[in-house]
Design a protein around this nucleic acid. Structure first.
Length: 282
DNA sequence: ATCCAGGAAAACG
DNA sequence: CGTTTTCATGGA
């Protein structure tokens, strides 16, 4: 099996990267191997120190997907501006934001609203099993995430088996809109952050939070700073104490938090957000 | 039973 | 216009 040697001074933690909640289609076996579906590939990978053993994709794909080409120390140094984020950087060393397929990322975060990570994983898995092409790997069957046209061709009653709840019509409407417009990905990618954000929010089921997640995880827009209940709590406790610690999140609060973060953490504030989110349970 | 979870649409005033 | 209510689902 191919092995990729990691640069000693380029930190990478496969476990942190895949378990921090940014992706929903990876599973870790007790023996340390991770299995995941990315596009039409089943990828198997494990890390032993500075070596990454993998199969299912060429090395260039692995490097690209895990953002191994990025100078992570330079990135974290750029937002290492206070003791609290410093602690998160130290404890989550090696955490990288992966480059997700945009369409799947879009649907994933439409399915994420008012929910939790295990539920999101279940929903995405249901959609793939119902509509996606089967993929074989080591005697087990995985499923690719279906394209926009596949979902657009269904109806809400068929989607109901995927347990999306009130999100079913959102997924369906967005699938139809995207299926009609082939250049969707490139048009979003060509826009600056604020305009791309506005464009994404025109889609059904995509609000400020989902738009920021999609821009951060699928479009490498690192100035996006998604604010969920966890991030709101952390920011209220450690950065903007006037927020208090209520649980609701108004539009004004969302913008206040992300503006603060953009100013305080700088151009890679989205990366800072992921470090804060990854250390939310402590 | 009640509350909560990587929120957003619809209804309301 | 900004603010509140509702939404489906499962786990704690």
């Amino acid at each position: 099996m191919p092995v990729l040697s990691l640069d000693q001074n380029q930190p990478f933690s496969l476990d942190l990267t895949l378990s921090c909640g940014q992706v929903f289609r990876w599973d870790r076996e007790p023996d340390g191997w991770w299995y995941g579906v990315v596009g039409s590939r089943v990828i198997k990978v494990r890390q032993d120190g500075t070596s990454l053993t993998f199969k299912g994709a060429p090395p260039s794909f692995i490097r690209q997907y895990f953002s191994l080409d990025m100078d992570l120390d330079a990135v974290t140094a750029s937002f290492d501006r206070d003791p609290f984020i410093h602690d998160a950087i130290v404890r989550c060393r090696g955490l990288r934001i992966v480059r997700q397929p945009a369409w799947e990322c879009l649907i994933s975060y439409i399915c994420a609203t008012n929910s939790n990570i295990p539920m999101i994983r279940r929903r995405i898995s249901h959609i793939a099993q119902t509509y996606g092409n089967p993929l074989e790997c080591e005697g087990r069957t995985y499923f690719a995430f279906p394209g926009p046209a596949s979902l657009a061709a269904t109806c809400t009653s068929a989607l109901s088996g995927c347990k999306l709840g009130y999100r079913s019509p959102y997924v369906l409407k967005t699938a139809c809109d995207i299926a009609d417009e082939e250049g969707w990905h490139d048009s979003i990618a060509s826009l600056p952050y604020e305009q791309a954000r506005s464009a994404l929010m025109k889609l059904r089921g995509v609000g400020p939070k989902a738009a920021d997640c999609i821009l951060l995880f699928a479009f490498q827009n690192y100035e996006a700073f998604p604010v969920d209940v966890w991030i709101r709590r952390i920011m209220g406790e450690h950065y903007i104490k006037t927020l208090g610690s209520g649980s609701s999140l108004t539009g004004w609060e969302y913008d206040t938090i992300r503006r603060f973060a953009q100013k305080h953490f700088g151009e890679f504030c989205g990366y800072a957000q992921e470090y804060l989110f990854a250390s939310r349970l402590d």
